[in-house]
Design a protein around this nucleic acid. Structure first.
Length: 332
DNA sequence: TACCTTTCCCAACTTACCTCA
DNA sequence: TGTGAGGTAAGTTGGGAAAGG
């Protein structure tokens, strides 16, 4: 039989019995009693009592232990339990391996399975239940760590993308500014030449008036003002070609440029009209937002309407596979 | 049928022990 | 050999669900 006898925390034992006046006690309570039996020096038991000495009888003489425990774990297991007496024992690697395999199959434990596993591993059912509880807790912690890592990686990538886009946006703004300055200089130059020619040839006054029509009274060109009609389109073409040859050719590809100068007349007119309603700041912000929305892989609702097939290269689910949802660990 | 009690199970947190560097 | 950190078995607490009176 067992070495060291059976130790019980007297108050705990009393509590267990008082809580369960009816016999036989529930399997839960029996599990607890079993745990105490097999682990006499259970934590926190400074008032530990050697139950055998105290009561002067064997634990197996207790009526509620008859039948049930032998039925559940068998006499052999009972003996094994007391071989573990004295100290808290770690499960053997074989036991852990077996439990792990079972955990992979199903991380919840039905009562029948618990008893069966306990029999096979020569442990108490409560030990098996506790192992599964702790294993689920460990799994959840690990899962949380992994999910945190994934989210952090996703965040870092988005942030770096954002930084790149912001830089690009700044660059484009500078470019637009330079182009506008160039355009203004050209207009001014044209105006001066017209004025000087106008004195000699008054027949050109209409053209001069037309050019002046797009300018404000203070002489500066209205920021973002949309040129209108075919005449305007010709002016755009002219400005476009000169600007392209002067600046754009040395810069990024045309696809990166968000400019009304490269659009069809009607489109340019509409967009220019829209832009004319904003201040420079709003314009910049709009541009930025447009860039982010287009480049950060979010499909436009009005264009696609359906998100079932995200565009290629799009950060679908923020980089997570669909089945890899963070907060769906356990189907309760 | 609503309410209460009991029982069971679980998650979350904590404690105590063991192992190892 | 003493010690602190990390892992793990087990205890405690509180809540939800189901069953029965």
């Amino acid at each position: 039989m067992a070495a060291g006898g059976k130790l019980f925390g007297a108050s705990d034992m009393t509590t267990l019995l008082l809580q369960n006046e009816r016999f036989p006690p529930s399997s839960d309570v029996l599990d607890s009693i079993w745990a105490h039996n097999s682990n006499p020096t259970f934590p926190g038991s400074k008032s530990m009592v050697n139950f055998e000495r105290l009561s002067g009888c064997r634990v197996t003489d207790r009526p509620f232990l008859h039948g049930m425990e032998k039925e559940e774990t068998g006499e052999e297991d009972y003996e094994v339990c007391f071989h573990q007496a004295g100290k808290k024992r770690r499960l053997t690697s074989e036991q852990v391996q077996f439990l792990e395999k079972n955990f992979e199959v199903e991380n919840k434990l039905e009562p029948e399975r618990k008893v069966q596993l306990a029999k096979e591993l020569r442990l108490q059912p409560r030990q098996v239940a506790i192992w599964f509880q702790n294993r689920r807790a460990r799994f959840k912690t690990k899962q949380l760590e992994q999910d945190y890592g994934k989210l952090k990686a996703s965040y870092d990538k988005l942030k770096s993308d954002h930084d790149i886009l912001a830089k690009e946006n700044d660059k484009l703004k500078e470019e637009v500014k330079a182009l506008k300055n160039r355009l203004n200089a050209r207009e001014k130059e044209k105006e001066d030449s017209h004025k000087s020619e106008g004195n000699a040839d008054p027949g050109d006054s209409e053209a001069v008036n037309s050019a002046e029509g797009d300018q404000q009274k203070d002489g500066t060109k209205k920021e973002g003002a949309a040129p209108k009609g075919i005449t305007v389109w010709k002016q755009q073409e002219e400005a476009n070609s000169s600007a392209k040859s002067d600046v754009l050719d040395s810069e990024d590809t045309e696809a990166n440029h968000h400019s009304w100068m490269q659009q069809e007349p009607a489109e340019a007119e509409a967009e220019a009209a829209e832009y004319s309603d904003f201040s420079q700041d709003e314009e910049d912000e709009n541009l930025m937002r447009s860039n982010l929305l287009n480049l950060a892989c979010f499909p436009k609702v009005e264009e696609d309407g359906c998100y079932d097939d995200p565009p290629e290269g799009c950060c679908n689910n923020f980089g997570f596979p669909v089945e890899d949802h963070t907060f769906c660990f356990w189907p309760y």
